[in-house]
Amino acid sequence: MANNTQDRSAPIVGVLALQGDFAHHEEALAACGLRTRQLRTAGQLGDVDALVLPGGESTTMLKLLEVEKLWDPLGEALQSGIPIMATCAGLILLSQHVESPSQKSYGVLPLTVVRNGYGRQYHSGTFDLASDVLPKGTTGTFIRAPRITALHGEVEVLARRSGDPVLVRRGQVLAACFHPELTIGHPVTAMFAQMIRARPAAIDYVGASQ
């Protein structure tokens, strides 16, 4: 069950909740000691310490981002330097080039991604990951997953599936083609929690003396 941590000082992670599996992300983040907030309007974006763009249908999310007038506010939040985790459809939204078909994206990650690049649902499943940073034996669940076919700039590859990059990091942005929120123990979400905690706390405004 999604029990949000009671720790009132825990960082707040905004989880984009227009459509998709934001609930499992909230459970995984709570298990890592973080507080969460569902984001459906621009007003809910203020003062979050980090952002999660979950899986779901990227076309549905794109449509709603435009209709809700969230495209620009979310874009500003993505540029603000706060830690960001994106999975599956979320990764598509952050990529520089989207193929099959091509669609609008934020271009935060310099890479090319092919939608449903591993095939339809029939080809979905859990696959071994090759990684130096994840616990040995960590697997990834790929569901109609996007496939990264090219890297165009500085992107750190943290895990691969049969040679393809599937978990990447660039600065404060962590993105996965698979679904870390569906993995026992949530190692990727734990890595994201570390990124959030490693950021220096914002300095409290104490007011001027005069």
Binding site: G56, T126, I143
Partner: peptide
């Protein structure tokens, strides 16, 4: 477990839609 995560995981992606 694998069937579950792949089948139910797919259905979970449709939530809120």
């Amino acid at each position: 477990a694998e069937e579950l995560v792949s089948k139910i995981g797919f259905c979970a992606q449709l939530k809120g839609g």
